[in-house]
């Protein structure tokens, strides 16, 4: 479990995160959403131990990530948005570095590379951005870690690879793992991420499961425009509207509409979900 308490972080005088408090529980794939510059990557960097919090604390299984202890490092993997291109074959990279993660499986890495249709014998510094990203995704999943932090994992992936990513994530992550995915490409991960965390400037607007969201908000997909919608948007064949769920009716959550609703009614959404 990851406990974040009153977390604060600033770059010099520029405050990025303030009083962030939340808990990330096992067996879930969290989607971390937010506008550009709200601190999603910073939060991921703090969670994995690349940055030190300016205030508050982060504890993963009771350990501080910034201490970078092997016991915790072997249980986590951080997949950055910007991957390093090294002068090594993908399979050599996996063998050379995978051995440091206690539960790393080379067979799983090769299996995943096949699923992603990427040649493990290819030199990593000759790969395209998408191929390199897929190689690192395969490596991340083959590490079998309990904590997996991914920053924009579908950026640079082609359409088939995005579907392969969803399948691989669902199939190859451990049941007890905590996966946190920061993304702007919500449609790529619509059916995968649950719960959803929406980060705002120095605040968490929402941290709720899809079930909780659908209990509190109603997503209407009819073509009829109704009054009282918190958010509405025309889509091909009709429109999508978000309402306060006063009747308890269930609906399918549209993450993009949810994000736009939260963006438009920050205080309201925060109040609704903080209850």
């Amino acid at each position: 479990m990851v406990s974040i308490n009153d977390l604060g972080f600033s770059y010099g005088n520029k405050l990025v995160l303030k009083n962030i408090t939340m808990t990330l529980e096992e067996g879930r794939i969290y989607g971390l959403l937010g506008e550009n510059g709200v601190g999603k990557t910073t939060l991921l960097s703090i969670l994995c131990g690349l940055k030190k919090p300016s205030a508050g604390s982060v504890l993963t299984d009771g350990r501080k990530p910034f201490d970078r202890e092997p016991a915790l490092l072997t249980e986590q993997y951080y997949l950055s948005d910007d991957n390093a291109s090294v002068h090594m074959k993908a399979v050599e990279y996996a063998k050379n570095y995978g051995k440091f993660w206690e539960k790393f499986e080379i067979s799983k890495f090769l299996e995943l590379m096949e699923i992603f249709e990427t040649d493990p014998q290819q030199m990593m510094d000759r790969m395209s951005t998408g191929q390199l990203k897929k190689t690192y995704i395969c490596f991340a999943l083959a590490c079998n870690t309990r904590y997996l932090y991914m920053d924009e994992p579908t950026n640079g992936l082609d359409i088939p690879s995005k579907a392969q990513f969803r399948k691989a994530l669902a199939k190859y992550t451990r049941e007890d793992s905590v996966v946190l995915i920061s993304t702007h490409q919500v449609r790529d991960l619509e059916n995968i991420i649950d719960p959803i965390i929406i980060l705002d400037r120095q605040d968490v607007l929402l941290n709720a499961t899809l079930q909780e969201i659908s209990e509190k908000l109603y997503f209407d997909y009819s073509s009829e425009v109704k009054e009282g919608a918190l958010y509405s948007e025309l889509i091909p064949g009709g429109c999508i509207q978000v309402f306060n769920n006063t009747t308890g009716q269930e609906s399918k959550v549209s993450i993009e509409a949810l994000f736009n609703t939260a963006h438009k009614h920050k205080e309201l959404i925060k109040n609704v979900f903080s209850k």
Binding site: G49, L50, R68, P70, L73, Q76, S80, N83, A84, Y97
Partner: peptide, 16 residues
Amino acid sequence: TDRKLGSNWLMLPVST
């Protein structure tokens, strides 16, 4: 000191 390569190295499960 490089962000990409350095991050990978720092995250390697080996003690300082």
